[in-house]
Design a protein around this nucleic acid. Structure first.
Lengths: 336, 336
DNA sequence: CGGCCTCGTGTAATCGTTTACAAAGACGTG
DNA sequence: CACGTCTTTGTAAACGATTACACGAGGCCG
């Protein structure tokens, strides 16, 4: 691999001058700049970011640790993060925690060793010592989607309480009463908050909150299926199942289909997170849509600010309800 | 940030010894090893991978440049690549080419600067000078899913010709004759090959191949919708639309739905690539499933071999047809 | 014409590792 | 006891960039 030294020799200048050209310092004569650039082109020189990072103590790289890239929410989030990072001149290194704290920590550790300039973390479950230590050491860190209590870390997330309340009102207006939810793990802020918002909304609507209608999944398809199975096995199964994310919705759908039940006639369905194919189901699925792209963009921008040592505040966007037909319709119109 | 120097001081040894402990060299006394590890723990030392890479000329990092992370095929692929890479001790840096050659090149360039140990590339369209140069320079490179003609690069991909032939036979047996396809861009090997396999299969079944039934999309939703629109606007619209990937299928479904057409009564649908939610559509979508996980795993393993300078051969797996009901059914059973 | 600025460039230190080589101590053997 | 061998450790030179500082040349002014 060619280095600045080779380029310098070829151009008949010193390495310092080459470096100056590469970093377009203004203190270099057009003529020499020309010569250096010519040498760069002739040799096919490519700057070594590793050496550069060592010297400048910056990698222009940020780490992104997400719950599960197969979860459409995170896929879209990763995409948005990537896009924004690129425009800001950062590369991203992705870590797939698979919703497991040990794997999250594995990636955080690796990313720290790689000396990423900052870290975007969708924290999995509880606070691990590693995360606590990272915060303490002052690495630029921003929580995304989820948060951890008791840590001073800016968080970019969407608040779904309003949308959930709207959903519950919608369900009540449709005459539903036995409303169950399969939420995320109570250890996750998103799981907890959505459950709380849900029970609060139920009470506000004067609807009963029954413990056995409160299932907890783990944001993966299997748990959605299992949760739906338990609910449907109840002596008095619910009218509606409100599922905590897209992957669990897939599982719940599997179960509903396997039992040959019809939506919304036998059981209605609503989902936190909106997926492109929801409109193609029959009936289309009522969902709560998060501003995913915006979440990703804002998170990267916040992290970039932190990296440049500017103070940044948390960001809370709002999710919104998208009513379709999977919970029934106002007018008692036909099945299709 | 603490460095080996600090650790060495604390443990009362030289930096060489610290390094030896860190790389568990066998030539170090249990007692000193102990002392060094204690110092590491006390100081919370974390090895600087940047410096290490500079010295060892290896980053234990591989680049993955894919067409579009939002495409479920690539999402699953990325996930599989990540998993396998982790078990082999590599991190991956992802680049989202968004099906654009310029963006692909942007990422290839960045990854080269970052000195990735190897590159997994799903090449976008034509051969760019940069890609050609990368091959020439001898960077360990493996093509994934797609290939480029005339370059000596091992490729890991799935062959769908058999499955496509089976699909066409299936369609013929169901009585379909006017079969259209929305394939990928002809510039992409996957686009080209699938089209060729499709026309060959049509001929083999004695079915006519009409040019106006051969649409080309770009593997993104919009083009699926546009292609479907053009096909359905034809004076003699097709019986069946065979879509080249999941994202375009989504677009085609949008168009079909917008026109209020019923599947398979008004137009049948089949898709190259199988998606988890296909089973939940009514009717469920007949699809061709690629062994995505296996593709990802094999690609990483192949690249790892190349990185260690062992010769590797291309890998061709086979896709398989998954018959569901979106093209009609043998027995003329009811609408549901 | 001497002194001082300014401008462009070069020299060399530095970032945090790894590792070739040297060195020093322990120990067995003739 | 002298010597070779083996084991464990240390010294210092890389890796490839950036950058503080020095330096020389040229221009300007008094």
């Amino acid at each position: 691999m060619t280095s600045v030294k080779d380029v310098a020799r070829r151009a008949g200048v010193s390495v310092a001058t080459v470096s100056r050209v590469l970093n377009d310092s203004p203190t270099v004569t057009p003529a020499t700049r020309e010569r250096v650039l010519a040498a760069v082109a002739e040799l096919g020189y490519r700057r070594n970011a590793v050496a550069r990072s060592l010297r400048t103590d910056a990698t222009r790289t940020i780490g992104l640790v997400i719950g599960d890239i197969l979860n459409p929410f995170f896929t879209e989030l990763a995409r948005a993060v990537e896009d924004e990072a690129r425009t800001l001149g950062y590369s991203i290194v992705i870590g797939n925690a698979d919703e497991r704290p040990d794997r999250q920590d594995h990636y955080v550790r690796t990313l720290l060793e790689q000396r990423v300039d900052g870290l975007l973390l969708c924290p999995t479950a509880e606070i691990t010592p590693l995360v606590r230590g990272t915060v303490r050491d002052g690495l630029p860190l921003v929580f995304l989607d989820r948060t951890l209590p008791g840590l001073q870390v800016p968080t970019v997330r969407a608040d779904g309480a309003g949308a959930i309340a709207a959903l519950v009102r919608h369900l009540r207006d449709l005459g539903h009463e036995r409303i169950a939810s399969i939420s995320g793990p109570a250890l996750l802020s998103t799981g907890r908050e959505r459950t709380e918002a849900f029970t609060a909304a139920m009470r506000a609507c004067g609807l009963p909150v029954r413990d056995r209608y409160l299932e907890a999944g783990d944001f993966r398809a299997g748990s959605g299926q299992a949760g739906a199975a338990r609910l449907l096995d109840l002596p008095e199964p619910p009218d509606v199942i409100f599922v905590g994310d897209g992957l669990m919705a897939l599982g719940a759908l599997d179960e509903i289909r396997a039992r040959g039940l019809r939506i919304p006639h036998d059981v209605a369905l609503a989902c936190y997170d909106d997926l492109p194919w929801f409109t193609h189901l029959d009936p289309p699925v009522t969902a709560i849509a998060q501003p995913v792209q915006e979440l990703g963009r804002r998170a990267v921008r916040a992290l970039a600010e932190r990296i440049e040592d500017r103070p940044v505040a948390s960001v809370v966007l709002t999710a919104r309800l998208v009513v379709r037909r999977s919970c029934g319709e106002k007018e008692g119109s036909g099945p299709a």
